[in-house]
Structure formats: C-alpha cells, structure tokens
Write a protein that binds this DNA or RNA. Structure first.
Lengths: 194, 194
DNA sequence: TATTCGACCATAATACGTTTATGGTCTATT
DNA sequence: AATAGACCATAAACGTATTATGGTCGAATA
C-alpha cells in the first residue's frame, strides 16, 4: 500500500530525526535507526536508498517547519515594519531549534553530501526573497526608504547571520536577546538622527 | 647589546610572520624560521622562549598595525558619520590582510594557545569601545539618535562580523563591496522612511 | 660574556598494518 | 510486498613503529 509506505517512511524519518539531532549525521548508524524503528536494517533500505536520503528528508522536513512557522506568524500582519520584526525574531529562535537543518546549512562535516550545496543555495535564495518581499511591501506602502529591495535583504540576512553564532552557542539569553533587539532597531531606524 | 637584541628579535618576528602567513602556525616549524633567519634553531631560542611567544609577537604586531591604520585614517575626521563610515571600511579591508591576527581571532586550531583567549577578549572590548566612542561623539554632536552607545556598538560589530566570511573568502570584490556599502547604509539610515 | 652550535631528548605527530564497524547488497523467506 | 540474515567492500578505528618537532643543554666560538 502506497499510503502505508508513506506512513512508515514518515515514521522512520521522525525517528531518525531524533537520533540525528542527538548524535549528528556522522555518528548516527543505520543500525540504530533500524532498531529504534523496530525493523531490520534491510527493511530500512526497502524504504530509503541510503542514509543520506533519510538525512535529506529530515533536513527538508525541518526546513519546511521553519518556512511554515514563519508564514503562520507573519501572514496576518499588515504592517511591513512589524512583519519584518516578527520575521527576524521568529527566524532566529526557530532556527536554533532545528539542529539538523542548521547543521546542513553550516557544518563543514556535511559538505561532502550531495544535496548540501543545493539546499544551502536554495535556502539562501528563498530567505533573501522573503525578506525582499517584505521590504518591497514596505516600499510600496511608503514606509521604507530603500533603493533596492534585494540588496537591502542581503544586508539584513548578513547581519542576522552574524548573530547566529553568539545566539546559538551562548545560552545567556538575556544578553543575546538584547543584542537581537538592538540589531533590529538598527536595521529599522539606523543611528543617524532623523 | 640590548638594542641589537631588539633588532634581531624584530627581524625574527618579521621573518616568522611571513612564514606563519603562508603556512599557518601549526604547519610552520621552528627549523624553517631558523633557516630563514640564517640562524641555528638554538639561536632562535636564545631570543624567544617558545614558538608560541614568536607567534604572539606576530599577532600583537598585526593587531597594532590595524589599530594604528584605523587611528590614522580616522583621526582628522570630525564628522562622526563619516568617521564611522571610514572605520568600517578600513577595518574590513585591513583585517583581511592580517592573516595571523585574523586566525588568532577566529581559528579553532589556535584555541589551545595560552594567549589566544586573552587577545580575543581584548580585541573585542577594544573594538566595541572604539565604535562606542564614535557613536558617543555622534550623540554629543546631535547627529546620532541612539539610547545606548555601547549596545549600538555591539550591534554594529555583530553585523560586521557577519560580513567577514563572505568578504574574506569570496574574492569577487564587486559584489561584496556592494554588500559592505549596503550594510553601512543600513546602519546609518535604517530602512524605515524618515 | 654574549652568542651560536650541534647533539640530544621527550613526545607529538605521522605512517603503517591489522582489526572492527558500517553502509549497503542480495537471496531466501514470510 | 515486506522482512530477515548472511555477506561484502571499504571506511574507520586501533595498536605499534617510526619520524618529526619543539625544546634543552653543554661546549665552542666570537
């Protein structure tokens, strides 16, 4: 049954996701995934052609989670200023939770996997597009003073990336949340007096 | 002669600097440094107690170069907006040239060296202070609209750090210079319409 | 006396051969 | 169609031997 296959695949993906999150791709064995799924290793290969294919499915699932969470949290916001504010905050907080996706974006150890470059490029482009769309909304609404929406999006994304390492490693949230708020204020209002 | 010792030390530091720049700390041997200095290895140990001490001297020299270049390029600028603009641009371009100093700040391979954490903390603090001073000048001159100069400095430094990797790795300068200019515009004027 | 040299040392790093683990395959079974 | 278990190729880990390297020390030299 095709439907049942999907169900089993999904279950394996979810189980593997937990193990990958805990041990990382490299240290996770197919035997572990099989046992946790209560199946033989060969049975796992019935549903997936390789360890990499499972990991790709996990990464794509996490990417989709981020995407839909961001969409959900911003869809009813009309004000582009507020929308961008929420986007940045949700993005930073959520990305820290999606360990496999973040590893796929950042980890040197995973660069040898075939789908990694593709997913890195894809995510970069999508993110810049989303931010550029919000900025374009702000331009159209006469609220943003920006020449080029895409260049602006690139600058915002760059600044956010600069905050990932201190945010995700240093768990003293109070200080980092201050940093995040401070950075958002900058991106919005700059430092030059109005 | 004390003076001659300093001269020889300086010469060894400069020679070592070139080799460290080329091969990195780890792959550079004391034998290489000795030969390039036209001395026996033991003679190097007459002037320096360890390989680490030489590397520290190299890193401190490069840090001092950055500091004095920044001071030189900003000291005659009265306008805090222009001063910060020049600071950011010179900082990014110069730091890329100081390979040993940058490695000391960023490389995981060097974290085991005793002086590394100290120099990282020191540089961070100094940089935030310099930027905060410029911001405070802007506040005093009524040109910057900022509540807290130090928090603002931290945000600016964070954004700059986000640009280091793409800037220093990707040598397609045209695109990255655009990014740098774009980021500076953001930091100054924000995106919200005035 | 200051400086240099060369032999030497401890051990970190590297090389190498052996063993084990792991991703994956294949056939038989249910 | 789905599963199990034996098996395979080779990557990874391991243990041992060898080499390289940072550093030391006493003697030699200027």
């Amino acid at each position: 049954m095709i439907a049942q296959n999907d169900e089993i695949r999904t279950r394996i993906i979810d189980i593997a996701r937990n193990i990958f999150t805990h041990f990382g791709f490299k240290k996770t064995t197919m035997e572990e995934i099989a046992q946790a799924s209560r199946k033989g290793k060969s049975s796992i290969y019935y549903y997936f052609s390789s360890k990499e294919e499972i990991f790709k499915a996990v990464v794509e699932k996490e990417a989709e989670e981020l995407k839909s969470e961001l969409a959900k949290r911003t869809e009813n916001i009309e004000d582009p200023i507020e929308k961008l504010n929420v986007y940045i905050k949700v993005r930073m907080r959520k990305l820290d939770k999606l360990k496999n996706f973040y590893a796929a974006l950042k980890s040197d150890y995973l660069s040898h996997l075939e789908f990694i470059e593709e997913i890195r490029n894809k995510y970069d482009k999508e993110e810049i597009k989303i931010v550029a769309d919000i900025i374009q909304q702000g331009i159209n609404a006469g609220k943003f003073n920006v020449d080029d929406a895409e260049l602006s999006a690139i600058a915002i994304v760059t600044a956010m990336k600069g905050l990932e390492v201190p945010l995700f490693l240093n768990k003293e949230h109070r200080n980092i949340e201050t940093r995040l708020t401070s950075l958002i204020n900058f991106l919005f209002y700059g430092i030059v007096k109005r």
